[in-house]
Each structure stands twice: as C-alpha cells, then as structure tokens.
Design a protein around this nucleic acid. Structure first.
Lengths: 360, 1251
DNA sequence: CTATTTTCTACCGACAATATCACTAGATAATAA
DNA sequence: TGATTATCTAGTGATATAAGTAATAGAAAATAA
C-alpha cells in the first residue's frame, strides 16, 4: 500500500480514537487506505487546478475521514461542513478545534450547523451567512471552483439524490452556478438502480434521468458478503466493466459490514425548459409496467395516445421493452410527445389525492 | 419432562401446507380431490379465545369458494359439474355434519329439473348417505316431498312415513314445498290440523274454506313478468320536469319510483276517491296516482278508521313498488337513457354538453354486443365446447382467467350487466380521494359486487315466484296470510354464500375493461401547430396509475367532457335502487343476516374485513342472544317518515341559485391556482408551489364533493316527496345503529335533517307546544338555558318565527341566523301552522323533537365511575340550569391561566382573554375518544390561529394551552379517567397476550404471536369484537391490472396499539348503543314514533315527556349493575387460558429461577428456547393437571415450567423495579377503580340529563 | 440485553398499492434404463 | 414400464415505485449493537 498522502497528520490522534457507536443510519468510509485509493482514482487535483479558489460544500459528512482527506488533498479555500446531528456536530467541533490548535485551521473547515436536507440551508449559506460566494460559470464545462460532497447513505435520503440530479436538469440549487460536480455516497441499492444502463433489470426512471442529465461514474462500491450473486441482483455488469470501481472492504466501513457506493456525478449541459417536466410525466407513465413494451404502455400516456402517437414512432422502438430504451430512444419519444396536440397538461397529470379536511 | 422436550423437537418439522383450492377454476376441481387432508389440518381453530364456542375453519376460504361455485353452477343447471364441486366440499369441512346444507342445496335445485324424478332424488341421497355418512334433515325430506307433489306421486304416503312432529317440521319449509304444494297437502283429508305448523294454520284454514271466495283468485302475481318487458315511463312528466332538470335536480321518481302500475294504483286511487268527500273539492284521476302527494292526502284524513284504511291501501301499493324498485331498478335507468337518446335523435344533432343520458345509452348500445359475446364465450367454455389444446400462451392465460369467472358471467342477462357497469363507474366518480375518477380496485370490486347483488335479487325473486306459484292469489294477500310466520319464507338463511373477492375483481375487470374500450366521448381541440380545430372521439375512461408516497395506485379517470356534463351533479340513477329508502317497513331482523330490504341481504352488523366478528355474531344469533338487539332495530325500522315539502322547496330554490348559502356550497368556479413558476426556480419554491396547488385543488374538490353529496340527498328527497318512507337500520360492531340507505337519512347534517318529518302526526297538547318551542330554541342555539327560558326565548321571538315562516326568503330572515338554520326553519313553519289554529295545542304535529344527551360518553363514564362531580357536570344530577361542560372546562382553564399570568408567564398573558368555550369544546369531546396530546394540540392550534399574525410560534402557545386543557379535563373527570385507564390497560393486556397453544404462539421471528382481540358482550347480548388486526394483503390478477385487497380470511396478529387506543371509546359507545336500543324498545312498546342519532333521541312533541321518562328509566336500568366489574369477570373467563408477557428485574429471585428452568430445558432441547416452547410445555402441564388419569395428574404436578414457577410470587409486587427481563405469566386484570358515591337513580329527576 | 431509532399520534359510519422478479416446492413431461 | 431427471407452474416474499420530512414532542415499539 502506498503512502497516505492525503491524510492530515494533525488528525491522526483524532481518527485513532475508538469509533463512534451510533451513526444515525449513516455509513462512512473508516479506513484511510480506502479513502486514499478512492482519491487516487478520482484524481481531483487535475480537475481543480486552482486550490485557492475551490469551495467545497460537504453535506452530512459525519465521521468525516473522507472529508478531511479530500480536504487535505485539494486544499480548498472554504470547506463547509453541513451537519446538524448533535453527535456529529460535536465530532466536527472537536476536529476544528484540533486543527485550529495545530495550524490555525489552514484547512479552512467551517461548520455550518444546519439541516442538509433543507433547501434553505444552501440559500442561507450563500446569501445570508455568506460563507461562500461561488462564481457563475459557463455551462460548457464542469465548474472548477465548487464541489459538492454528500453522504446520502441512509436510504431515506435516496429522494435527495434523485432531487439533486433533477437540479442538474433545471439548473437550480447549487447547480445554478454552473455544472457542479457532486460526490455522493449512496446506499448500494440506490447505486444499483440509478446507475443501471438500458435493458438492465434495475433500469428505472431515475437511471434514465441520470443518463439524460448527467455523466456519472461509479467510483467505489462495498464488497459483497456472499460470493454468489444472482444474475441481475447486482450492479449492471457493463457498468462495473466500464467504471472499474474501487472495492471497499466490508471491514473498512463504519458501521462495519455496511454497504454503500460512491458516485461521481457531473451534470451535462442542459437547458432548463418546461418540456423537461412534461417528459418526467411521460417517463413515469411508460414506467408503470417497466417490463412491458412501448406499444403496450403507450395508452397510459393519455386518452387516445396509442392511436395518435404510434404512427410517429419507429416499429423497432414500439416493440422495445421500456427498460430497454436508450438515451436516444427516449429523446426520440420526447420529440414525438412534444408535438402531440392532445398531450395532457401538467395539471391533469398531477398525482393528487383529495383528503377530506373537514372538521368541526 | 424429558419426553415432552423430545416431542417438542419433533414439532419443529413443518406441518404440511394445505392445498389452496380457492383459486382453482370450476373445471380444475375434482371430487374428493384433497383426500390428503388430515384431521389435524381440518381441525377447528379458535379466534381470540378458546373459552368462546366460536371457531374458525382452516379451509373457510376454500369452502366458501366451492359453495358459491356450487350455487352458481346449479343456477346455470350444470349438475354434473356441481356434483363434483359438492363432493369436493366434504373433505374440507371441519364439521362434517354441515355437509347436509350443501347437499340439500344441490338436491333442491336438481329436483327442479324436469328430467329428474323423485326416485332419483331418493337414490341420490342414499348414495350420499353411504359415501359420507350424513343424515337427512327435515329440509331434505321437504325437498323430496315437493318432488312427489309436483309429479303427483304418492306424496301423502311419503309424508305419512314420518312422525307427527317431524311432519310438522317438514311442512314448515314453504320455500321448498311452495304454497301450491302446501295447498295440495292440506286439502288431503288425512292431514289434520295437528300436523300443520302453527304459523301455517291460517293457510290451512284458508284452504279448507277456499270455496267461499273464489273470485279473488287472479291468474298470476302482478310482478310476474319476464325481464324483457318494458318498464313504463311517463313521458309527460319527464317533459314537464326538464326545466328543473337544468338546475341540476334530476327526477328519479318516474324512472325508479314511479314505475307506474295501473293495477296496483287502482286500489289506492279508489280509496282516495272514496274519501273524496273528506278531501274538499279535489279530485284525482287514475293516471295521477304516480304524482300523488300521499302525505298531503293523509294529513287531511279525519278519522282513525280512514287513516287505517288509507295506510293499508298505500302499503299494498307500495309493496309492489318496493319490489319493482329492488328487482327492476337497473331497467329504470336504462329506459331513462333510452328515452333521452331517442328524443335527441328525433331532434337531430346531439349537442355536446347536453344529453348525458343519451351518451350513456350510446355506450350501452356499444357495450352490449361485447358483453353478450363474452357471456357466450363463457357459456361455450362451460359447455366444454372450447378446446384448450391449440391456444397460444397468451390465449391460454385468457382462457384460464375466463374459466375462473365464467360460471358467474352467465347468470345475469348481459343487458343488465351493461347498465350495472356504467352506473357503478359513474357512481364512483370522485371517490377514494381521486378527483374526476376513482380507484381502480374499488371500481372493479364494486362492479363485481353489483352483479352479485343483481343476481341475488333475481334469484330471490325467482324462489319467491316458485314458492307462490302462479295459480294462487295475489302475493300480497298470501303474504298477509303468512305474515305471522317467523322465518323468512322465501329463503333459507343457511345458504347465503358471498362470492369471493377474486370473483368480484375478475368479473368486474372484464366488464370494466370492455366499457373502457367502447365508451367514447366526442372532443374538439385546437391543434397548436396547425391552428385547425380537430374533432374526433376519445375514450371516456382512462386507466392510469397515481403515486401516493411512492406507492402505486391504480386509477380510472373520467374524461373532462364527461366531467363537464356531470358538472358536480350526481347521477340520480346511480344510487343503487336496492339501497334507497324503503316504501314499506323493512323486514324485521330475525337473524344476523336476515332483515332489512326485501330482495337483498344486509347483515345485522356492518363488518369490514373481520370474519371473526361474523363468527361471533352467528354464534350469538344461533344462541338467540340477539333478540333484544333485533327488537330495538325493528322499532327504528318501523318508524315511517316523509319529506318536509315546504322546507324542501326553500332549499331547492337556494340550491338552484348556484350560490353559496348557509351550508350549501356554491357551484364550483375554477379553482384559484397559484401563479406558475419559471422552470429554473429554486427547488424550495417549486415544492412550495406544489403544496399551494394541492391545497387549492383540495379545496375545490371538497366543495365539489360537498355539492355533489348534497345533490344526491336532494334528488333522493325529491323522489320521495309525499311518500311514506322507512329506513332499515343495522349496527356497527359496537351496536350503534345506522340507516342502511346512504346519502339521504336522518343522520345527515342540518340541511338533511330539516327534510325529515314523521309520517304520523300527534296533537301537540300543552306540553307538546312547549317542547316544540324548546326544540326551536335548541336548534337556534339557545340550548344551555333552563327549559322555561328556552320557551320564553321563543315566545319573545314569536313574531320573528311567524315572519320567518311567511317570508323565508327575506335576506335577513330570523331563521337564517340560527345555529341549525334549516331545522329552525322547519320548526318555524310548524309553529306558524299551529298558531293559525285558534288553539295551537290542537295542532297535529309531525316534526321530530330531539332530546340530546350532554356529552353522552362522559355521562356513561360518570355513571360507571359513580363520580359525583363528573356526573354533575354532564347533568346526571338534578339542577336548576343545565350544566355546560365546555364552558366549565373553559373556566377551569381560565383559572389556571390567570394564575400563571399573574406570575408573568408570557403564554398565559397572551392567551388570558382568549379562552372560550369553543376553544376547548373539540378537545373535551375528543378526549373521550382518547385523543393524544399532539392531536389535541393540533385542534387547539386551529382554534387560536386567528389571533396570530404569522410571526409568532403558534404551536408553542397551542401546546401550552393544550396542557392546561388536558389537566383541567383530568381534574374534572377524574373518575372517568380512572375507568378509561382501566379499560385501556385491560385492552393492552389482552392484545399483548399469548394463548396457551403451541401452534398459535409459534412464529418465524421467535416472538410469540398475539392473536386475541378484545371481545366483550353488551348488556343486550351483542358480542363486540374489535376488528383491528394486521391485515394480510391478497393479490388478485385481473385483465385490467392486479389489485390487492386485504385477505378477509386471514387470522393475523392483532394490532395491539389500535386495540388499546380504541377500546375505551368503543366500550362506552357500546353502552350508549345499548341505552339507545333499550330506549327504542321501550318507546316502540309505547307505540311512539322513535328515531335516534346515537345520543340524540327523537319523537313527537307530544310524546317527549314520555320518551324522556323512558330515556332515564333505561339509563338507570342499564347502569343498575356494575358494568365494569362484569366486564372484568367476562374478560377473566374469556382469556383465562392466556399468558401475558411482563418485564421484571433480571435480579429478582423469580428471574433467576426462570433462567434456571430455561437453562435446563435448553440442554435437552439442543437449541434456544422460544416463547412458543415455553408455552408448549405449560400447555402440556395444564393438560396433565386437568386429566382424568391420576397418573397424568401426578406428572403434571411434578412438571416445572417457566410459568409454573411464577405461581409462588405475587406478581403485582414485582412490577415496578427496573424492567428488563421478560417472563410469561398467567393473564390477569387489574382491580377496577373504586366506584364513587353516585346513585344513578337520581337521573330520573334530572331534567337536563337529556334535553 | 441495552440504547438508539422509528413510529405514531381521536372512535365510529367508510374498503383496499401494484409490478416484477427471484425463489421454492410440487407437478408434469421427458428421458434413459 | 418404472424410475429419475429436466422443465414448468403456481405461490411466496422481497423490493421498487416517488422524489419534501418535520410545522410540532413524547411515549411506545422496533431494531441494531
């Protein structure tokens, strides 16, 4: 094993202390070696060449080993730790205290004691508390002064990663500053789903959106316990082949034996339009029965959709299964849909359950 | 000991799984198939307690499937198949003797086949006898006898084989033998009156004297028509009512109710004619019978004799109409559509927004051929004319599916199924929280159920026709002759088998799918690219899915054009005619499933999914424990009502204006939607936008559904203007009574209630006039003053009252300011009419006067706890003025807050002047239902929201206030809370208990199963079973989509939390229900008109005093025994064979002792002990102890189990220390709270107890 | 066997998630003896 | 032909679905260490 070049020696003692007992269903990288391997693979110093200008927004860092190492590697101008879980806030206060004592926190960590789930947190971070003020960059390239790290490993935060991907499409949230790279720890199940390619059994709406709006890599995955992995129940094999993810040993996680994956998400250059919202519904309608063929699912697009749209769709697409559709297939379908005069309005398609709110 | 543990090891080997027959198709079932079923598998299981003689058959689901198949196959005369099914039933039965019911069913239907002779029947039965060892019952003999009779065999000698008592029993099966058959038998001289069942003596006499009135014989019962005869509609009326129609009030009367019967209207019209003299100068022509305002006529009658005659004539007329209504309702709807369709065609074009009915008829026409074809295919399949071999896999699936539902598809004529499908889908519009659509699962089930209902009505009608064959007198007359017969004469209550949910779903899916395919609606749209207007047609229904918190939900949506045409109206025909209010008194309740409507079955208790409840109920019914419940309900059902026409007209006028007025919502305008955002708006804004959008749509949907609901009510009311109507009632599982007819019933809101008048009138008298005034004061909102002040209030406002009645439309009319304005208006009319008389006390009043209990739940709690202070607050004690609980609680809260404000508490200071009765009311009310602190805080927050401008944290204030309200309530109703807590604790123990039964206790996760529901018996004998169990879902594949429904046959674990939370309110509600039924019975015996809304009791003004006396007497009677003590004793008996899990300190000597026992057992067992193992050993021990064999008893005494060691300890003393060691101990209940000093007798003197 | 995390939060009338796939056991068909 | 194995099937259980969670707080149940 090579040297741990990214490990901050000032924190050696801190990270040698006994591991925290409870993680609030968060999962973390617990080994310096693994983190180092991941950082090597990410090779971020090439991508953020002006260390003095990089800001890192680091959400739910928790235990924080990976955060401190990426920090040590990239030497950012500001590294904002967004945390509001009491135990973790304590941990980070401790870290910052240590760093301040040793070298006046030249790592530039800032603890922002707010809920990373809440959108207002980011709004206030920039507008009100002005901890960072990112520049607006052209959408021709990936933003090179801002990096988002998110530990979304609890399953309940799967919705957050889905929404962050949509922010890439709508150019809002932090993605309004440009195409900001995101490094996200997500549950294994989520990674398997979201990273599936066409025709893979786990292909779903989110993976299509990932295809359409981002360029994403599977950076690291945890070791699977059981050697026998049933066909289709693991990762998309093409993905494993393409991305060659780092294997995180099951004992190198906190808590041990937990499973998660690290994704590197680069937004594509997308122009936000209302059509995207319509396409979301379009996809949703087709994905009602993902194993069926396009021709079977077209009726769900709207009253009369089958008759009206079928003539404009090539036969080879019509007989494809929904999961088999590729990025270009989808784009073609979107085009046909956009030109359909009877396409239902967004309001009509809104899922809405009426609740009797009457009281005395 | 050792041996038992060894045995336990063996038990680990899995019990063989039982075959699942319930989803086999009719042709896959072969007789005797499950020979492999062992007695162990067949063994009857228990539900919640082995103390109760209520059992559960493990194959209930399969048996039910087979029985329904048997029935429908018999109906379609597939005797061979049916026989296979019949023989497949036997091995599944846990109680083999019940097999005779199925055999009889087969025998009876088979006997109607002309190719079968009585010899065949006897032959068949002896085969069955040999093969299955069954014994014939009287019904069996009756069936064979009937065949003898119909074939003119030696029936008398057949009958004479039996002893006299047996003969009598055989002859009591009228539904089998038929009236004609009985007449034949009775006319034989060898039959003496001693042989005749008591309730048929009338018939016997009639037969023997028959020569006397031959001329009354008519050729056939008047309703004995074929299905394809046209139902007459009255063009003229339809025409003249169209103006009203456009306002949204469609008329159901002439399609559903006014199925005009010349023959039957004759009688009533002639009666009216005879009375013409007494009616002034009005005159009536024949064809006006259907337009008669019977109530108006009735009111003018002067003498008791006249009234009796009129009522009797009307009854006979109505009986016919009621039959038609129930049996032919679907035809009426179709005829209406057809009529409108033809009108449209005559006039040429079909305008888009008009002619919904014509549109429906179009669908009907398009749908019919498909349904016919489907039915034909099903028929072919059943006849075995379809070869299965050369089908593609897809076709095979289809075939398999069809094979499942085919037997059910061929029962109801396709025409009817089409109408049913269309009606159901329209009726369900905007239900289940779906705007402009419905949940698919519900739609399919409803269509399937509607087909079943239709089938059952038809077959009931058929069997009635069989029983009263053609040659006898008019059915009405026979019914009168037989009216004193106790049992239902046309149906055997034993053999009602509901179709399974799988059948409902599959059948519904076929029909729905076809309708979705054919139903189109014309559309116009602009092509945005070309700018041209395109016309075409689009599907009227749209199958889709919605996501609810990430869960898929199948949905059927209606096309916007259809929605436009409905425009927030309801479809009058869509109300299932089988469930409208009745024109004749409902059939009396005789059994748990026998009573109510004439041709459709209702159950005494509304049951959700709980087969357990049904089992308990059935048992109670069999034991004759429910008679008092029947009595009470029958009183409610016998109360005749009519619609208050004057009030109705006023409502209609405001309704038609389409504007908001009092509680009438306005006609829907477009919802007020928020401004759309730019696409790249921040996520937070987008979600906020979604939220606003949702709440706007929600509001709009609420308004519209309210309007739609009111529309239903008004349309039904309109249909019944001038009619004499009745409401069949049944009860919820706690015994509270509800009218079965939905929408329009006296449980409704102010508007609905104002439409209700008693059909019978009663002269007011002095007291009645006073009560009438008090009632007005009550509905006006002056209900907290002493009675005399309330009277005074009305006297002071008499001019206002008269003015309101004379000019109800005045913008600021007095009645509009009432708390319940519509009912106030009704009383105003009544008072004004009364004062028109010289002596108002002589006025004959029809309006119901309400007497409401003050916080009825708390009244019962106070009586249970004997809590004097609590009792005073809810008017159990005599007082000069009524106590107002809410106000009192508010004052208590005020005191607390004042005190804290003194100390400078900022919440207190702010809230000090805002404590009103209204703020605390809801919380006090819901406190009885066990509202939690959080829930109450939400309520209070709503109340005080208005005082906040937005910045302050309302929630903190609400929480603060709630705390004080809770404490005040607790302080005031200390006794009630002790009872409440006791009930909750007892329920918790029961629902957390484990039965001493290895099979039950064993579960996958090692934790014991909790299978015991809280069950208690009301003082009237109604068993209440809390139906809260963790539901297991069952997936049904249909050709529209898969649907999941909770499996009603699963005996899953109880939902302990719900059991506990709901028991205290349920128990108290079961008491108030009991009180109501007792009062109903008493009032019924006194011949008062009586109605109730749970804790509000209604009668005529003149009878209020009488009723009030009964209310109090019955309350005292109810509470004369210590109900909580009795409950405890009942629980102790019922759950005596249960253990509970308690936690004790691991350091306690008992804990150590138990650990020791466990350790020893583990050594032998070779694996960890589970709770189930401990239970098994304890069970074995108890079995030995209770054994006859002294040797065994000895072994039992020597056994040491984890439970037996606890006997030495006083468990109550152990509880309390640090709890971390869980042990099993026998289930016990805490001591009941000490009863206070209150003597319930005092309520007899309390004027404001109910007022 | 403890500590943490999640769940749930007012009764009744009033009823509902569905698609897909991997896996199993049992049934059927096919095969080789 | 009888036995054995391959193949098929129905039934079961697990998982995904969407994509604000929370504006509240405290007990009880569930779950992980």
């Amino acid at each position: 094993m090579t040297s741990l070049r990214s490990f901050n020696p000032a924190l050696a003692k801190h990270f040698s202390a006994p591991l925290p007992k409870f993680q609030y269903s968060f999962k973390h990288l617990a080994r310096r070696e693994t983190c180092q391997a991941i950082l090597d693979k990410l090779d971020l110093t090439k991508k953020y060449t002006q260390p003095g200008k990089l800001d890192i927004v680091d959400v739910f860092s928790g235990y924080g080993l990976f955060s401190t190492m990426i920090n040590y590697e990239l030497k950012p101008r500001k590294h904002v730790i967004i945390e509001n879980i009491k135990a973790n806030v304590g941990l980070w206060k401790e870290k910052i205290r240590i760093l301040e004592n040793s070298n006046a926190n030249r790592e530039n960590f800032v603890l922002y004691n707010r809920d990373g789930y809440n959108w207002d947190t980011y709004e206030d971070l920039i507008s009100k508390d002005k901890l960072i003020s990112p520049s607006f960059q052209s959408r021709d390239k990936i933003h090179d002064e801002l990096l988002i790290i998110g530990n979304l490993s609890p399953t309940k935060y799967e919705s957050l990663i889905a929404q962050w991907i949509m922010c890439c499409a709508y150019n809002n949230w932090l993605q309004k500053y440009g195409r900001v790279r995101m490094l996200c720890f997500v549950p294994t199940a989520t990674a398997k789903k979201f990273m599936s390619g066409p025709a893979f059994g786990k292909r779903n709406k989110s993976s299509v959106k990932r295809d359409l709006f981002t360029n994403s890599k599977l950076v690291a995955i945890t070791e699977t316990e059981d050697t026998v992995v049933a066909e289709g129940s693991g990762y998309d094999p093409r993905l494993l082949f393409k991305d060659q993810p780092i294997l995180i040993p099951s004992k190198g996680t906190l808590p041990t034996n937990s499973d998660f994956a690290l994704l590197e998400i680069e937004p594509e250059n997308i122009v936000a339009t209302t059509a995207i919202e319509e396409h979301e519904h379009f996809m949703q309608n087709l994905f009602y029965s993902p194993s069926k063929k396009v021709k079977d699912q077209l009726p769900f697009i709207g009253p009369g959709a089958l008759d009206d749209l079928a003539p404009h769709i090539p036969d080879e697409i019509m007989v494809k299964g929904i999961r088999e559709l590729t990025k270009s297939d989808w784009e073609l379908l979107f085009h046909v849909y956009d030109n359909w005069p009877f396409r239902p309005s967004l309001l009509d398609q809104m899922d809405f359950i009426h609740e009797d709110s009457r009281n005395f | 000991m050792h041996q038992f543990l060894e045995h336990l090891k063996l038990q680990d080997q899995e019990i063989k799984k039982s075959p699942s027959i319930h989803n086999k198709t009719f042709s896959e079932i072969i007789e005797n198939e499950p020979e492999s079923i062992t007695d162990e598998q067949r063994r009857l299981r228990v539900w919640s307690s082995d103390y109760d003689p209520v059992t559960r058959s493990p194959f209930a689901k399969d048996v039910s499937h087979l029985q329904s198949l048997l029935e429908v196959l018999l109906t379609s005369k597939n005797f061979d198949r049916a026989r296979k099914i019949l023989e497949a039933i036997h091995p599944l039965l846990s109680e083999p003797h019940t097999f005779i019911f199925s055999v009889n069913k087969y025998l009876q239907t088979w006997s109607h086949d002309p190719s079968v002779h009585y010899g065949d029947l006897e032959q068949f039965f002896s085969t069955m006898e040999q093969r299955y060892g069954i014994t014939a019952n009287e019904r069996t003999f009756a069936i064979i006898l009937a065949k003898y009779i119909s074939e003119d065999g030696p029936y008398i000698s057949y009958l004479n084989r039996f002893s006299q008592s047996k003969k009598t029993q055989i002859l009591s099966y009228i539904d089998v033998i038929g009236v004609e058959g009985l007449m034949k038998v009775f006319s034989d001289n060898s039959i003496s009156i001693e042989d005749v069942p008591e309730d048929l003596v009338n018939l016997f006499r009639e037969v023997r004297n028959e020569l006397n009135d031959k001329e009354t014989l008519i050729s056939e019962p008047e309703y004995f028509n074929d299905d394809n005869t046209e139902v007459p509609t009255v063009d003229k009326d339809a025409e003249s009512l169209r103006a009203v129609d456009s306002f949204g009030l469609k008329v159901i009367r002439h399609t559903l109710l006014g199925l005009r019967e010349e023959a039957d209207s004759k009688e009533i019209v002639s009666i009216i004619k005879q009375m013409e003299d007494g009616l002034g100068n009005q005159s009536w022509s024949d064809d006006e019978a259907s337009k008669l305002d019977f109530f108006k006529v009735y009111k003018t009658l002067k003498t008791e004799e006249q009234r009796e005659k009129f009522n009797s004539g009307l009854h006979s007329f109505n009986l016919t109409r009621q039959r038609r209504l129930e049996v032919r309702g679907a035809d009426g709807a179709k005829e209406k559509w057809k009529h409108e369709f033809e009108e449209m065609q005559k006039r040429g074009a079909l305008p888009l927004n008009k002619g919904l009915n014509a549109q429906l008829f179009q669908w009907y026409k398009n749908l019919l051929p498909y349904v016919k074809k489907e039915a034909e295919m099903c028929q072919k399949l059943m006849d075995g004319k379809v070869s299965k071999t050369d089908l593609s896999p897809d076709e095979k699936k289809l075939y398999k599916d069809r094979e499942y539902y085919a037997p059910y598809m061929v029962l109801v004529p396709p025409e009817k199924m089409c109408v049913i499908t269309i009606l159901e889908l329209l009726k369900l519009n905007s239900t289940g929280g779906i705007v402009d659509g419905m949940r698919a699962a519900r739609a399919l089930i409803s269509v399937g159920k509607a087909v079943e209902l239709e089938y059952k009505s038809q077959s009931l009608l058929k069997s009635e026709i069989k029983a009263f064959s053609k040659k006898v007198k008019s059915t009405n007359q026979w019914k009168r002759i037989l009216s004193n017969k106790k049992n239902n004469i046309i149906e055997n209550p034993d053999d009602s088998t509901d179709w399974s949910y799988t059948v409902y779903a599959k059948l519904g899916a076929v029909l729905t799918n076809l309708l979705l395919f054919v139903a189109k609606v014309p559309v116009k749209a602009h092509n945005p690219t070309t700018g041209k207007t395109i016309t075409g047609s689009q599907p009227a229904f749209f199958h889709t899915y919605q996501f609810l918190n990430g869960q898929k939900l199948g949905v059927i949506k209606l096309h916007k054009e259809i929605i436009k045409q409905l425009a927030g109206r309801s479809l009058s025909n869509a109300v299932q005619p089988q469930l409208l209010p009745m024109l004749v008194a409902p059939r009396e309740w005789h059994s748990y499933n026998d009573g109510g409507y004439l041709y459709s079955r209702s159950t005494l208790v509304r049951i959700k999914d709980s087969a357990e409840t049904t089992a308990y109920l059935r048992k109670a019914a069999d034991l004759g424990n429910l008679n008092e419940v029947y009595d009470g309900l029958n009183v409610l059902g016998k109360t005749p009502w009519t619609v208050n026409r004057r009030v109705f007209e006023i409502i209609t006028r405001y309704w038609n204006s389409g504007e908001e007025f009092l509680d009438i919502p306005p006609i829907m305008e477009e919802p007020n939607l928020p401004e759309p955002l730019p696409v790249d708006a921040e996520p937070a804004q987008k979600f906020e936008y979604q939220r606003k959008l949702r709440s706007a749509l929600n509001e709009a949907a609420s308004l519209r559904s309210q309007r739609c609901d009111t529309n239903y009510k008004l349309e039904i009311a309109r249909g019944f203007l001038g009619e004499k109507v009745f409401f069949p009632h049944n009860v919820d599982f706690r015994g509270r009574a509800y009218p079965i007819s939905p929408h329009f019933n006296h449980l409704g809101n102010d508007l609905t209630r104002s439409l209700f008048l008693f059909w019978e009138g009663r002269e007011l008298g002095e007291r009645g006039l006073e009560w009438l005034k008090i009632h007005l004061a009550n509905v006006y909102g002056v209900d907290k003053a002493p009675l005399n002040e309330r009277v005074q209030f009305v006297n002071d406002n008499l001019e206002n009252v008269f003015e309101s009645a004379r000019n109800p439309y005045d913008t600021d009319a007095w009645w509009k300011k009432a708390e319940k304005p519509w009912q106030a208006l009704g009383v105003c009319f009544e008072l004004e009419e009364a004062y028109k008389l010289e002596n108002p006390t002589q006025y004959v009043s029809h309006i119901p006067i309400h007497q409401d209990g003050t916080c009825n739940g708390l009244q019962h709690y106070a009586a249970l706890g004997g809590d004097i202070e609590g009792a005073r607050q809810v008017n159990l004690l005599p007082a000069d003025r009524p106590q107002d609980v809410y106000k009192y609680v508010a004052s208590l809260v005020q005191k607390r807050i004042d005190a804290e404000a003194e100390e400078g508490n900022k919440y207190a200071v702010f809230l000090q002047d805002k404590i009103t009765r209204k703020v605390v009311k809801q919380t006090v009310m819901t406190n009885v239902y066990g509202v939690t602190f959080v829930g109450a805080t939400a309520q209070i927050k709503k109340q005080i929201d208005q005082y906040f401008s937005g910045e302050e944290d309302v929630a903190d204030y609400a929480r603060y206030l709630t705390m004080h309200v809770f404490n005040s309530i607790r302080e005031l109703f200390e006794g009630a809370h002790l009872i409440q807590d006791w009930l909750g604790d007892a329920a918790k123990r029961v629902s957390k208990s484990v039965r001493i039964d290895y099979e039950d206790a064993k579960s996958n996760d090692g934790k014991p199963n909790h299978l015991s529901s809280v069950i208690w018996t009301t003082p009237l004998g109604l068993p209440c079973v809390q139906p809260y169990r963790i539901s297991k879902n069952q997936l049904i594949k249909t050709n529209l989509q898969d649907i999941s429904i909770s499996d009603p046959f699963s005996a899953s674990q109880v939902d302990a939390r719900k059991q506990q939370a709901a028991f205290p309110p349920n128990f108290v509600h079961s008491l108030d229900a009991t009180h109501m039924l007792m009062t109903a019975k008493a009032c019924g015996d006194a011949r008062l008109s009586f109605a109730s809304v749970h804790d509000s009791y209604w009668t005529h003004a003149a009878d209020v005093d009488h009723m009030n006396k009964e209310i109090r007497n019955q309350f005292v009677k109810l509470h004369s025994s210590n109900l909580v003590q009795e409950l405890k004793e009942e629980f102790e008996k019922r759950y005596k064979n249960c253990l509970q899990v308690i936690s004790i300190s691991g350091e306690h000597p008992l804990a150590k002792e138990i650990k020791e026992v466990r350790r020893n057992n583990v050594k032998i067992l070779g694996r960890a002990m589970t709770a189930a193992d401990e239970i098994y050993l304890e069970k074995t021990r108890l079995e030995h102890l209770n054994s006859e064999d002294p040797e065994k008893v000895k072994i039992g005494k020597e056994m040491v189990t984890t439970v037996s060691v606890t006997e030495k300890y006083d468990l109550n003393s152990i509880v309390g220390t640090t709890k971390n060691f869980q042990i099993l101990v026998p289930l016990t209940f805490p001591d009941i709270p000490a009863k206070g000093e209150l003597d319930v007798e005092v309520v007899k003197e309390s004027p404001y107890f109910f007022s």
